[in-house]
Design a protein around this nucleic acid. Structure first.
Lengths: 100, 100
DNA sequence: CCCGTTAATCGTAATATTGCAATGTAATGG
DNA sequence: CCATTACATTGCAATATTACGATTAACGGG
């Protein structure tokens, strides 16, 4: 137990659920907002902006990246993150299709 | 630890996160899809439709109701659930505002 | 080549979520 | 009033998530 019974549901339902789960945390929403506002990408700044420790931010970034919502490019010693628009659009489309 | 540090974020971020969390489970998505398709509301049928036990369905319904996405009205011995359109619209609006 | 800076990863504690059996509650039919 | 039917609640086991200290990996400057 404690595990979601994914085999009971179809791919669309499971995919949408995991996309939404990736967004369903205030820190990850705050990260997306910051990336949207900053236009270009940032990284260590997020640790400053939100009050969370560096490993925590790194973990949230990883979840957003795994879900496809952001992309990260190594820029020398730092990493530059930015929003992955197509995935975002697709998420909204699927969500829209849900209730109509 | 293990708790989300909600005090680090503003109300909009926390509210959106909890709305999305309510949606972020395939069973709850399946429930919403079924309610949308059936137009009118249903209830015990959901236990049949999805392969989950009755207490589990009841718990998911409760979470959706707490988040405001559905409403339930007692109809004799059974309970009739239906989608709460305004909350749904508002969720999409807030989500839209996030990335733009 | 060493050092500092930046970020990912590991390990772990605290807490939340998922799912269900058992039980409780409320209405309905007889 | 009793049995039944439809749900909700409780309690608990299994697992997932959140957060962070400690450590590691990778790059650039001297």
């Amino acid at each position: 137990m404690g595990t979601t019974k994914t085999d009971l549901f179809n791919a669309e339902q499971n995919d949408l659920a995991s996309m939404l789960k990736a967004l369903a945390h205030p820190a990850r929403i705050a990260i997306l907002q910051h990336l949207a506002k900053a236009e270009s990408c940032i990284c260590g700044d997020l640790v400053q902006e939100l009050g969370l420790a560096q490993p925590t931010i790194s973990q949230h970034l990883k979840e957003l990246k795994t879900a496809g919502f952001i992309k990260g490019t190594v820029e020398g010693v730092s990493v530059c993150y930015c929003i992955n628009i197509p995935v975002w659009e697709q998420c909204k489309t699927v969500l829209d299709r849900l209730l109509r």
